[in-house]
Write a protein that binds this DNA or RNA. Structure first.
Lengths: 153, 153
DNA sequence: CTAGCTATATAGTTTTGCTATATACTTTTG
DNA sequence: CAAAAGTATATAGCAAAACTATATAGCTAG
């Protein structure tokens, strides 16, 4: 283990580990692609199939099929885009948001034992760190979204 | 967005988001399974195919095939287990560790802009939070490993 | 209005990962 | 200690997922 690893690098390593440990701790077999898609819609709002595919790092045909399957389960819905009738806006339904939320609760509970014995000072440090992280990731997704080649009105 | 979400839950949500954003920012097409496997071996040391499969959340035959392909690229090597000649110990090679490290550097650099303007106080908060996180995830993987049904000598 | 461009859908193929099972070795038991 | 039962990995065959290529429909520029 390098001692001189930059902070941001340590951050992404721990993020990957936490993600892996949490998935391991819950017994769910639901494909990660479903949660990833619902997470993106939940944080970034409704968007087109193509944008969703890019954000989720799959090809557009793959996302089209995933969206079809999610729509069948009423987890998302497809709204006609008034500005461009070729496109659809994909939005999470209340049921979809609830399913995502339940999964997050499950993940949180699975990780809980690891953090059960945090001291008040440690809890405060993590709370502060979360506020910082949350502000940065919120910014990042906005950048990613505008990266789409979009006509300026 | 819930305001009353528990700390641990916010943590896993941000971990997922960071993982997603970082993957998006780099253009790599290398399957995630490869990095996941190398990460596990790197942090938890050499282990058997079966344990590696469980840790990586794939079936044993899938891991057998992945291990074969990684061995062909000299990213891992298979050591005979002296205690049980049915089993192999899988270990990351120096080349494997280097590849993992390069990928982590790339992820870190991709996220760098998001964190370029941290104040000294914010940096310190994140540094402290990382120390806490690193100690907890280190603990967690040890627990997962002993969870294997292992004969006591 | 036509030519070219863009958004999503479909078809067909490749890849990935699964279940079932075989093989080799270890452990338990009578 | 030999036979039976159990465990670790490997292989075979199949199912699911995701890709490339392309079709279809709608938009936009000249």
């Amino acid at each position: 283990m390098k001692t001189s690893r930059p902070l941001v690098e340590r951050l992404i390593i721990e993020a990957n580990r936490l993600t892996r440990i949490a998935a391991l701790a819950t017994g769910t077999t639901t494909p990660a692609a479903i949660w990833r898609t619902l997470s993106i819609l939940s944080t970034d709002g409704s968007m087109r199939v193509g944008d969703l595919a890019r954000a989720s790092r799959v090809t557009q045909p793959t996302m089209t099929k995933l969206v079809q399957s999610l729509a069948e389960d009423d987890l998302i819905l497809r709204i006609a885009d008034v500005e461009d009738s070729r496109a659809w806006l994909i939005a999470a339904t209340p049921k979809g948001v609830a399913a995502l939320d339940a999964w997050r609760v499950e993940l949180g509970e699975a990780l809980q034992p690891m953090f059960a014995d945090l001291s008040p000072a440690e809890t405060e440090t993590l709370e502060k760190a979360m506020v910082i992280l949350e502000s940065r990731t919120a910014l990042a997704t906005r950048i990613a979204q505008t990266a789409r080649t979009r006509k300026v009105a």
